[in-house]
Write a protein that binds this DNA or RNA. Structure first.
Lengths: 336, 336
DNA sequence: ATGAAAGCGCTAACAT
DNA sequence: ATGTTAGCGCTTTCAT
């Protein structure tokens, strides 16, 4: 416990010498035990255990050209949208014998690009969550590297999409049946795929006869941004708020309360992504996403082509849409 | 974009041949540019750029014995306590030219131990956040590997502690001055250092004359667990709740509301860790932690001894306590 | 069934 | 200032 030097790490050579066998034998005892006498395998394994030998993945990778980690890249790990996705990815990666290298780009495009090229020669592939890179850049990168996208819809690049359209529609339908007519949508990041997708659903809904829809953007898409955006919409006397995500939605609840409007008695509020909804009071109506399936699928996609082959554009494969589901909450009530 | 094969990755040899120089020259152009003619450096860099050459960290590590990633290990990345810590660590690691390998152990002791030994030969060191391993096991591992702990207090092992004692005391003092006398503490995970620490503060406070303290445990330490635990304490007619963390606190708020008690009019509630507090309404009083300092410090500690030297037990060094701060919220009011 | 030797991409003495 | 060589820990032909 108070050693001043780190004990030398046991290598394959140590084990080989210790046993008086060749390095190949030791290697095979782990990778191709079938090639060896069962008894030899046992002897090697025992010795390895005794000496505390663990194969160096670094050396293995260099020798085989096969890499054991997958880089998972996110714009901001503290955004509650990502942790569950990451957990699912990491868990699946482990099941498949892989490690996850985490890259937080701090919302920076250049940081993301740098990360990609720097890591390219040392990972099996990439899972890019909500990438901030432009389409063309992503296309270029995907042609060189093994890349899977989450929540970016670019044809020709393998991707998994957490689609909230159906969930949003269900939520709006429900609000309509509760008598709501004057809606507000508090949007999120401009360039984000999730937001454009949600916006589309909302705009289509706004075409309904008798429905009015005020659109405001939360900048940034945080609690405070949501609160400010919500405050700006109060003039339109809305009775129902749809929000980019749960955090923005909580901000809206706070802003409404500030001007004396209670949720759900006076105004109904719906969040999205189910990040906070189940951990707040009153429980928020939201759109639930299948984070586990998404994270798993992304990892399976990166692992699928042993070589980082990119599917041709016309292939239906390499493309997965997971539909989010509307879940009721205590933030919903009949329109006043 | 629809290539069926991955283009061969450029290596140092390609660049060397392309330029008609030796591999050493290419290597030096990147690592010891001072040794070369400025013009040579430029030529090499241009060629490298042209060929799309990026040095392989894998090869570099194998050659130098220096590893470029730090393993960050957490029991559950979806627990909101960790993401900000991870972000800070990852950001600091980047500043120092390092990568973060993420390990989510899914609360499993064995998984954690396995991860440690498997990764040991391929990373520079480990940051173990809220490790679930027993003290002795941790001591043993720390004697072999370069390990830094977050929120585990084991003498002889370098560690950073997010101490909430002062913050809890301030919170309790504040509640006392608001006239509260009948308290409840909803505790968290049994074996957790954070919980024992909080429990200690609470128990000391309970000694105050006139103060009553009911202690109940949230199992698990989630929204639901918090709600159930809170419900069990209502018989003691408490007016103030202290909770293991913000999530548990929100659960308590929900449970109180179920029995018709409003926060803060009837009961005051204080959370901990500031994970949710600023994103919910009403804003929760909580103990704010310096996640950035903690994450940074942990990385700096792993990086500090170029060799993974463990400080002797009597060294004051390798030990950092960061005191959390009580922050007011809208969940506080005078006792009824 | 096992061993010997070459090589993965890079760095670090040791020349020159 | 640059080139040569050996070697990091492992896998993989190719022998035996």
């Amino acid at each position: 416990m108070s050693a001043d030097t780190v004990p030398e790490r046991a290598t394959i050579t140590h084990v080989a010498k210790y046993l008086g066998v060749s390095k190949s034998t030791v290697s095979r005892a782990f990778n191709r035990p079938g090639m060896l006498l069962p008894e030899t395998v046992a002897r090697v394994r025992d010795a390895a255990h005794e000496l505390g030998y663990t194969p160096s993945k670094t050396a293995m990778s260099l020798s085989t050209g096969l890499y054991t980690s997958i880089a998972v890249v996110v714009p901001d790990i503290a955004n509650p949208f990502f942790p569950r996705l990451i957990r699912a990815a990491q868990s699946r990666a482990n099941e498949r014998g892989m490690l996850c290298l985490l890259g937080d780009t701090d919302e920076s495009e250049t940081r993301e690009a740098t990360l990609l090229t720097e890591l390219a020669s040392d990972v099996h592939g990439f899972v890019l969550m909500s990438s901030r890179l432009p389409d063309e850049k992503l296309r270029e990168l995907a042609s060189k590297h093994n890349i899977v996208l989450i929540n970016r819809d670019i044809s020709g690049i393998r991707r998994v999409l957490l689609d909230t359209t159906a969930g949003m529609n269900a939520a709006m339908e429900r609000l309509l049946s509760l008598g709501h007519r004057r809606f507000v949508y508090i949007g999120g990041p401009d360039r984000s795929w999730s937001n454009s997708q949600r916006l589309l659903a909302v705009q289509a809904f706004a075409e309904r006869p008798g429905v009015s829809m005020t659109i405001e953007q939360a900048t940034p898409a945080t609690f405070e941004g949501g609160a400010e955006a919500a405050a700006r919409t109060i003039g339109s006397k809305p009775t129902a708020f749809l929000c980019f995500d749960d955090v923005v939605a909580e901000g809206a609840v706070a802003a409404l309360s500030t001007v004396g409007l209670r949720v759900p008695e006076d105004v109904s509020v719906v969040g999205c992504d189910d990040t906070l909804a189940a951990m707040v009071h009153p429980q928020m109506a939201t759109i639930r996403l299948d984070y586990v399936a998404a994270g798993r699928a992304a990892i399976d996609m990166v692992l699928e082509p042993p070589t980082g082959r990119i599917p041709r554009e016309d292939e239906g494969d390499g493309y997965l849409v997971l539909a989010g589901q509307f879940v009721e909450g205590a933030t919903l009530a009949p329109a006043v």
